[in-house]
Nucleic acid binder design. Structure first.
Lengths: 193, 193
DNA sequence: CGTCTATTTGAATGTACTCAAAAGCGGTGG
DNA sequence: CCACCGCTTTTGAGTACATTCAAATAGACG
């Protein structure tokens, strides 16, 4: 169950067996069935976690009741409400499962404790954060400069596994367009070829 | 010249005089006149820096030659091409000055060296990065769920100093709309009141 | 004052949206 | 196995909002 997590850490840092064992203790395995929640808007002190298996989404709900997806996460990704866990404020997002999933969850306090006990995790999380930051920046750039069609192509190219597994209406929400529009875009793409 | 920088650091970490002196050595003060560049697309190993005075923008240019602004920075902010400096690849963005400015610049290697010599900077940059990440996430959320008018209102509220100092066409570029549209939006806002 | 750039305004166009409804698909229970 | 239900995807028609192209006005600066 934890081999995958270890391999994941070791992409960014090197770990002794002892340190890895210390780290593992902070993670709580959770099975989350399709439609169930890992995090609810308003929760406090929850962080999120590492996805062992399955697929989840992070989203918020606006005044009109519309969902807007900030991020998907599949195997070997992290998903969390960084803002609320860093500031200790109530969560602004929901995280729920699009497939039956397994998550190794980590709350805000455990993450801190882990960094204190095994300082190399300070580095690990910094590197994780850097990658996440860059991805967000790229997404902003795309939304500023590209057509909806181009953004959909980019998405398919950057995250092919997600594009295949996730329903079209969810991808539309991620891209900031309606499912109807995405359906039409896809149709035109087929006709062109 | 460096008091402001010190105060800035001490918002996030505590520093001895000796450590601060070590840190200062890595920064190269630069005066950048309006229109001049701190970073050009294609540069390697440049990081960016801390803005002591003035106002700069970070942007890229698309296939059609259009500029798209990812970020502004005024006094007490940082501005950098994080991606290229982290990966060592050529810069994807340009950074130039909208006003005569003073920047304490730091290249990629110096930043690394600084973290090695004064480890508490590892923490400093992590915290800086967290703040930046959260800001990007918020901006994505806004672009998914809000009208152009609402995004403009948010921008004015979040960054009032910038909204006042920066020309409308630059703000339009940041928001991802044309200057004409922003002009009309602003006109309607006045008429409503 | 003249030049250059930023802002505003107008008119026509286009892209994505809303509302509405049909078609497709998957799973459940009779 | 088929009928039905709920949900996703597709399609159609009309609309809204931002864009483009063009031009006039306003401001900034040497």
């Amino acid at each position: 169950m934890y081999e995958q997590l270890r391999a994941h850490f070791e992409k960014k840092i090197t770990l002794t067996d002892a340190d890895f064992q210390k780290a593992v203790k902070f993670f709580v395995p959770k099975k989350i069935r399709k439609g169930q929640f890992l995090l609810h808007e308003g929760d406090i002190g929850r962080y999120g976690g590492y996805v062992n298996k399955g697929c989840l989404r992070q989203y918020s709900i606006d005044d009109k009741g519309e969902e807007h997806i900030v991020q998907f996460a599949i195997e070997d990704w992290w998903i969390s409400d960084m803002y609320s866990s860093l500031t200790g404020t109530p969560a602004k997002y929901n995280i729920d499962a699009l497939e039956n999933s397994e998550v190794l969850s980590l709350d805000a306090r455990s993450q801190e404790q882990l960094c204190l006990e095994v300082p190399v995790f300070e580095r690990f999380f910094r590197l994780l954060l850097q990658g996440a930051f860059i991805a967000k920046e790229r997404r902003i750039m795309a939304s500023l400069s590209e057509s909806a069609e181009q953004q959909y192509l980019d998405f398919q190219k950057a995250y092919p596994q997600i594009a295949q597994r996730v329903p079209l209406n969810q991808i539309a929400s991620y891209l900031g367009i309606t499912p109807q529009s995405l359906s039409r875009i896809r149709k035109e793409m087929v006709e062109k070829k």
